[in-house]
Structures are given as C-alpha cells and as structure tokens.
Computed example of a mutant assay.
Amino acid sequence: MSTDVSQIDIRDGVRVEVHRSGDGPTVLLNGGLGQPAPVWEYTGVVSALTAAGFSTVAHSARGVAPSSAPPGPYRAADLADDAAALLDALELDDVIVVAYSMGCYVTQELIRRHPGRVRATALVAGLQPSPIGELVGRMEIGLLDTYGTIPSDVMTFEQLVTTLHPALLQDPASVRGWSEIFASSGQVWTDDTGLRGNLMASYEWITAGEPTPDRLAAIDVPTLALAFEHDLFFPPEGCRAAAEQIPGARFSVVDGVGHGGFFTGQTDVVARVVDFCREQV
C-alpha cells in the first residue's frame, strides 16, 4: 500500500499535512485530540479500507505537527470548516467519514455546517463525553495557565489511565511498555498555540453540553456509533443514550478495551467500520 503525503494550504493561515491512500470511494478520517495523520495507519483502518476498495484521506489538524498553528482560539466548528476546505481543495464531495474521539465533535459540526458533504459517518469512541473528560481538560488548561506547560510525566500518566483497559493497567510489563511508547511519541503539537487551541476546542465542546438532543436529532446521514467497554472519556451508556437521539443510528459496544481500543486490543472494531462503509456504496 502506498501513501501520498502532501502539505496543502486549505484556507488563509491554515496549512495541513494530508495522507492519501487507495482508490475508490473516499473515506475521510477525522482523528482525535493531537492525533497526527500517520497514526491512522497503525490502527489498521487505512489498510483495511484500501483493501476493501476505498480511498482514505487523513490530515493532521491545525495545531498538530507538521500542520500550521494559526492564532487561537480554536473551536470544533473551525476544525470542521478546515475539513470542508480540505475536501474543496481535493475536489471531493459526498464522502464517508470515520471519526475517533474528538474527531466525532468535528464530524458532527461538519455535518451541521456543511450539509451534503457527508454521505455517512462512523463515530468511534467519541459520541458523548463524560465528566472525566471535562475534569481532565480543566486540569490541562490549568497547568498551562499556571506553569506554561504540561509536564511530560503528567501526560504519560493521563494517557495510561485513560487509554488502557483494566487488564493492561494491572500488568506491569504492559504499563512499562506503553509508558515508553507515550513518552517517546515525540512532539505532536506544532507549538504552544496549537496545543492550547485544540485543548480549548475540546473543552468548549464539553462544557457547552454538546452534543445536545436537538442537534443529535438533526443528524440526517446513516450513522454507526461505537463505544469501548472501559472508556473513561466516553462511557458506553452515555454513548448509547446519545445514539438513540440520532435517527436510524446503529449503536454497539466493543468489549474489553478502553479509550485506546483502536490501538491496544485484538478487536473487531476495524471490521465493523469497514462493513459499515461497504454498506454505504
């Protein structure tokens, strides 16, 4: 599988790195908070979709290296407008969107603000935020305000506790191994503006009470909502209740994994996503 990597100026002050693979109907991949485009390849989603006859488009959002970090504040709506501008730049329309975590916020805004651009969407581990997500966001922003940075050990601990499921957290070898992965993942942010901008976009979404029932009810495209059994940020029952507000949405739980279920467990989440995409063409 070959991947085309390019830097694209999508609108004034916003340049994003874009990864494109495969041929066929397009699937736009909207990643989570601070998720660079190449991470999608590690989930297995890109290879599975291209093998199924789709093309994929993933981008590093504004503020995520090596994309540009225009001045803040950022909102989920800004990130959605960036995604629409990227589709314009690539002359794409009527795409399927697969979204993960904060990418689900962006996708909902994309559907809302740019009707007709999205054919269907799979919202994975990101439909209904929990109070823990609000607490973590407030902690991170508070650390930035007080110290100008978020200590690396704090970030590693946060990622461990929220990403891994209980069995991995109780296994010393797994904790050590994942600690090394998180600590060596490098600088994902373009600069401090990008970090703060994305944190604030996420925090604003959560504290605004999104997604609201009326806005969920207005989602008018086929929707698959997946939750992960041990997800602290997006617990299954909250996601189930939110999915029930989306007309015709399908909801299911992926057992045995935490928020990082795309990366940490042998699950059928990729197969579920690919099967859903196949049904839309």
Results as ranks from 00 to 15, higher is better:
residue 228 F to C: 10
residue 238 G to L: 06
residue 109 E to L: 03
residue 25 P to E: 09
residue 5 V to P: 10
residue 76 A to L: 07
residue 108 Q to C: 01
residue 32 G to A: 11
residue 44 G to P: 12
residue 58 A to P: 11
residue 156 T to E: 07
residue 28 L to M: 14
residue 154 V to M: 04
residue 73 P to E: 11
residue 66 P to F: 13
residue 22 G to W: 00
residue 253 V to C: 00
residue 83 A to H: 02
residue 276 F to K: 03
residue 15 R to M: 08
residue 60 S to G: 10
residue 229 E to F: 00
residue 272 R to H: 09
residue 72 G to K: 08
residue 275 D to F: 00
residue 40 W to I: 13
residue 228 F to E: 10
residue 200 M to L: 15
residue 134 E to H: 09
residue 142 G to C: 07
residue 217 A to N: 04
residue 271 A to N: 13
residue 42 Y to E: 15
residue 77 A to F: 08
residue 105 Y to R: 11
residue 54 F to L: 08
residue 111 I to S: 06
residue 82 D to I: 05
residue 124 V to A: 03
residue 136 V to F: 05
residue 165 H to G: 14
residue 63 G to T: 09
residue 27 V to N: 07
residue 84 A to S: 12
residue 16 V to K: 02
residue 258 G to K: 03
residue 272 R to E: 07
residue 254 V to Y: 03
residue 216 L to M: 08
residue 155 M to Y: 04
residue 261 G to V: 07
residue 216 L to H: 04
residue 185 S to Y: 08
residue 35 Q to C: 08
residue 207 T to A: 15
residue 225 A to V: 15
residue 178 W to T: 06
residue 120 A to L: 09
residue 214 D to S: 15
residue 32 G to W: 06
residue 7 Q to K: 13
residue 260 G to A: 14
residue 126 G to H: 02
residue 184 S to K: 10
residue 212 T to G: 02
residue 192 D to H: 05
residue 187 Q to H: 08
residue 200 M to R: 11
residue 273 V to I: 15
residue 213 P to R: 13
residue 218 A to R: 10
residue 48 A to H: 03
residue 274 V to A: 14
residue 273 V to R: 07
residue 160 L to F: 04
residue 9 D to K: 13
residue 29 L to V: 10
residue 45 V to K: 05
residue 243 A to V: 04
residue 213 P to Q: 11
residue 182 F to D: 02
residue 126 G to V: 01
residue 139 M to D: 14
residue 253 V to T: 05
residue 232 L to A: 13
residue 268 D to G: 13
residue 4 D to N: 14
residue 231 D to I: 01
residue 257 V to D: 10
residue 281 V to D: 02
residue 274 V to T: 15
residue 105 Y to S: 09
residue 199 L to Y: 15
residue 280 Q to A: 11
residue 228 F to V: 06
residue 124 V to S: 01
residue 30 N to T: 14
residue 84 A to C: 03
residue 229 E to W: 01
residue 213 P to V: 13
residue 137 G to K: 02
residue 135 L to D: 11
residue 169 L to C: 02
residue 55 S to K: 08
residue 39 V to H: 03
residue 239 C to S: 15
residue 86 L to V: 13
residue 92 L to I: 11
residue 170 Q to M: 09
residue 253 V to K: 00
residue 204 E to R: 11
residue 264 T to K: 04
residue 213 P to I: 15
residue 235 P to C: 06
residue 187 Q to N: 12
residue 267 T to M: 03
residue 219 I to T: 03
residue 141 I to V: 14
residue 206 I to H: 02
residue 166 P to K: 09
residue 38 P to Q: 07
residue 75 R to D: 05
residue 250 R to H: 04
residue 17 E to S: 13
residue 89 A to E: 07
residue 11 R to S: 09
residue 110 L to V: 10
residue 139 M to W: 08
residue 32 G to M: 08
residue 156 T to D: 09
residue 105 Y to H: 15
